[in-house]
Amino acid sequence: MNALVAILWKDLLSEWRSRDRVVAMGVFALLVVIVLYLAAPPGSGPEARAHVPGLLWVAWSFAGVLGLNRAFALELENEALSGLALAPVERGFLFLGKALASFVLLLVVQLASALAFALAFDLDLRPVAGRLALVAALGAAGLCTIGTLFSAIAVRTQYREVMLPLLLLPLLVPVLLGAVRATNALLLEGTLPWPALQLLLVTDGVFAIVSFLSFEVVLDE
């Protein structure tokens, strides 16, 4: 448990000092918002707004992949990854620390880009802010759990920046479908459908368990 807190603190502190991951993810998400705004039907009418939930998750998942790619690239410097592998602690907690750090960073980026979306598409997010935050956090949790596991794998392969999205995106479908569906109902009808929420909760649980248990063999060096 101490390892979890130590890793989380270390990742957040180094991010606070350099701010490179959050800035890169944030700028990237903003660029995605602009590109998607230009690609969506013109104006900010209901037709354009109907696309917002899907577009929002495109921006968030791309920014998430970008951040996750850096999560372990950082540990390659000075062989820090070998140090982590040798540490006499339960590796599952190392995983949870890394995943939580990525999760916190993604939440920050999600908040900033949701505001950008609200401005670009003229949306009033205030009435649904709390429930939208819940859906965003559940989606981010799914993305960061399985994403952290695959980031640890991808970082040890050739073409690692390409490998992570290739590994991650096909498995992310349940998270994205659940999250887009929930966000859609929330933004267009103001309701939060239980089946979509249920799918997100179950998927997050399965991903967390699979990643926690498999991290042991992924780091084995």
């Binding site: 349940p174 479908l177 659940g178 979509a196 799918l199 399965v206 699979v210």
Partner: peptide, 12 residues
């Protein structure tokens, strides 16, 4: 592990 999840997701 993701096959049953995908099944529910696409059904949904």
């Amino acid at each position: 592990a993701v096959i049953p999840l995908n099944y529910f997701a696409i059904d949904l």
